[in-house]
Amino acid sequence: MKGKVVSYLAAKKYGFIQGDDGESYFLHFSELLDKKDEGKLVKGSMVHFDPTPTPKGLAAKAISLPLE
């Protein structure tokens, strides 16, 4: 699924993505496929991810940034 980063707290390594389906997904650095892309996780960045339901809500897994 595609989505847009709505927040990312680099110090805490987490944030949120708004998916194309309108839902909010929890984003964690550990799910970023290329850790070098962390600096690109800023508000408004477009990402691809696997939407995954968890006991705490919806989460983004296997997060990647589109090729530039």
Rank of each mutant, 00 (worst) to 15 (best):
M1Y: 05
M1D: 03
M1A: 07
M1Q: 06
M1V: 06
M1P: 03
M1T: 06
K2F: 13
K2S: 13
G3W: 02
G3S: 01
G3D: 00
G3N: 01
G3K: 01
G3E: 00
G3C: 03
K4T: 13
K4I: 14
K4W: 15
V5M: 04
V5S: 00
V5N: 01
V6T: 12
V6P: 02
V6C: 12
V6I: 14
S7Q: 11
S7R: 13
S7A: 11
S7V: 15
Y8I: 08
Y8K: 02
Y8S: 02
Y8G: 01
Y8M: 05
L9H: 14
L9N: 15
L9G: 08
L9M: 13
L9W: 15
L9C: 15
L9T: 13
L9F: 15
A10T: 11
A10C: 12
A10V: 12
A10Y: 11
A10I: 12
A10D: 06
A10E: 09
A10W: 11
A11V: 11
A11W: 12
A11M: 10
K12A: 08
K12T: 11
K12F: 10
K12Q: 09
K12M: 10
K12R: 12
K12P: 03
K13H: 10
K13L: 05
K13P: 01
K13S: 05
K13Q: 07
K13R: 12
K13F: 05
Y14W: 12
Y14M: 06
Y14A: 04
Y14N: 03
Y14F: 10
Y14D: 02
G15W: 04
G15P: 00
G15T: 02
G15V: 03
G15I: 03
G15D: 00
G15S: 01
G15E: 02
F16C: 07
F16M: 07
F16N: 03
I17D: 00
I17S: 00
I17M: 02
I17V: 07
Q18G: 05
Q18M: 14
G19V: 03
G19I: 02
G19W: 03
D20Y: 10
D20W: 08
D20P: 06
D20L: 09
D20A: 11
D20I: 10
D21M: 03
D21S: 04
D21R: 03
D21G: 04
D21E: 03
G22W: 03
G22Q: 05
G22Y: 04
G22T: 04
G22M: 06
G22P: 01
E23W: 10
E23M: 14
E23P: 03
E23C: 13
E23G: 08
E23K: 15
S24Q: 13
S24E: 09
S24N: 11
S24K: 13
S24W: 14
S24T: 15
Y25W: 02
Y25G: 00
Y25N: 01
Y25R: 00
Y25M: 00
Y25H: 01
Y25V: 02
Y25I: 02
F26D: 02
F26H: 04
F26E: 03
F26I: 06
L27P: 00
L27Q: 00
L27R: 00
L27T: 02
L27S: 01
H28K: 07
F29A: 11
S30Y: 09
S30I: 09
S30G: 07
S30V: 08
S30N: 13
S30K: 11
E31A: 12
E31W: 07
E31N: 11
E31C: 07
E31D: 10
E31P: 00
L32P: 00
L32S: 00
L32V: 04
L32H: 02
L32T: 02
L32E: 00
L33W: 05
L33D: 04
L33H: 05
L33E: 06
D34H: 09
D34P: 03
K35I: 08
K35C: 08
K35R: 09
K35Y: 09
K35Q: 09
K36Q: 11
K36H: 12
D37S: 09
D37C: 10
D37L: 09
D37V: 08
D37M: 10
E38A: 10
E38C: 05
E38L: 07
G39V: 14
G39D: 12
G39S: 14
G39P: 14
K40S: 07
K40T: 04
K40H: 09
K40D: 04
K40P: 02
K40Q: 07
K40Y: 09
K40E: 04
L41Y: 02
L41C: 03
L41Q: 00
L41M: 05
L41F: 03
V42T: 11
V42K: 13
V42L: 11
K43Y: 13
K43Q: 09
G44W: 05
G44S: 04
G44Q: 04
S45T: 15
S45W: 05
S45M: 15
S45Y: 07
S45C: 15
S45H: 10
S45R: 15
S45E: 08
S45F: 08
S45G: 08
M46Y: 12
M46P: 11
M46W: 12
M46D: 08
M46S: 11
M46L: 14
V47K: 00
V47T: 04
H48K: 12
H48Q: 14
H48R: 12
F49Y: 05
F49T: 00
F49R: 02
F49D: 01
F49H: 01
D50F: 15
D50R: 13
D50H: 15
D50L: 15
D50M: 15
P51T: 06
P51K: 06
P51Y: 07
P51F: 08
T52V: 14
T52Q: 13
T52A: 13
P53D: 11
P53G: 09
P53R: 14
P53V: 14
P53F: 13
P53S: 14
T54W: 06
T54R: 06
T54F: 05
T54G: 09
P55C: 09
P55L: 10
P55N: 09
K56G: 07
K56N: 10
K56L: 10
K56E: 07
G57L: 03
G57S: 04
G57D: 01
G57E: 01
G57T: 03
L58K: 10
L58T: 04
L58C: 08
L58I: 05
L58S: 05
L58A: 06
A59C: 11
A59V: 15
A59M: 14
A59H: 10
A59R: 15
A59D: 03
A60R: 00
K61V: 09
K61D: 02
K61I: 09
K61R: 12
K61F: 09
K61T: 11
A62F: 10
A62V: 06
A62N: 15
A62H: 14
A62D: 08
A62M: 10
A62I: 05
I63V: 13
I63R: 01
I63Y: 01
I63E: 01
S64D: 05
S64W: 15
S64F: 13
S64M: 11
S64C: 10
L65W: 06
L65G: 04
L65S: 05
L65P: 04
L65E: 03
P66C: 15
P66W: 15
P66V: 15
P66K: 12
P66N: 13
P66E: 14
P66A: 15
L67K: 14
L67V: 13
L67N: 13
L67S: 13
L67H: 12
L67T: 13
E68C: 12
E68P: 12
E68L: 12
E68V: 12
